[in-house]
């Protein structure tokens, strides 16, 4: 776990959620700029996944018994949120597509926070 990356993913994820939420509020579909933003957040999320995988391979483990499985599940889940919702938004070119990407970005941010919690030893919830 690399804390600056965690903060970056959470902050950019929430910003993207607000941005796309605003587009939905204005009755607009997801546009190229939004997709660019989503790609940026995704790059950070993937970087975190790579850093964490390297740490796991190097013998580092999240604190607490049996928390490695939980950690890996969250690690896989975070980078999936945005691609899945972006694909949905391709077929829903209206405000609901924007709302979908907004939810995906918010969920990615929340899962990233949980990921950091689990690494610190808060597994099991």
């Amino acid at each position: 776990m690399f804390t600056p990356l965690t903060v970056t993913v959470v902050v950019t994820g929430l910003l993207l959620a607000v941005w796309c939420g605003y587009a939905s509020f204005r009755d607009q579909p997801v546009k190229d700029w939004h997709y660019g933003g989503a790609a940026l957040v995704e790059v950070f999320a993937l970087a975190q996944a790579v850093v964490s995988t390297v740490a796991l391979a190097g013998g580092d483990r999240p604190a607490g018994e049996g928390s490695t499985v939980v950690f890996v599940c969250y690690l896989v889940a975070v980078p999936l949120c945005l691609p899945l919702t972006v694909v949905v938004s391709f077929t829903e070119r209206n405000r609901w597509g924007s709302a979908t990407v907004a939810v995906g970005a918010a969920v990615a941010a929340v899962l990233e926070l949980r990921l950091a919690d689990v690494w610190a030893g808060a597994a099991g919830v």
Binding site: V88, E92, N94, W96, G97, T100, V103, G104
Partner: peptide
């Protein structure tokens, strides 16, 4: 699942 339904399916 179209329109608002997309959001519901996702959530």
């Amino acid at each position: 699942k179209r329109g608002p339904g997309r959001l519901l399916v996702l959530l």
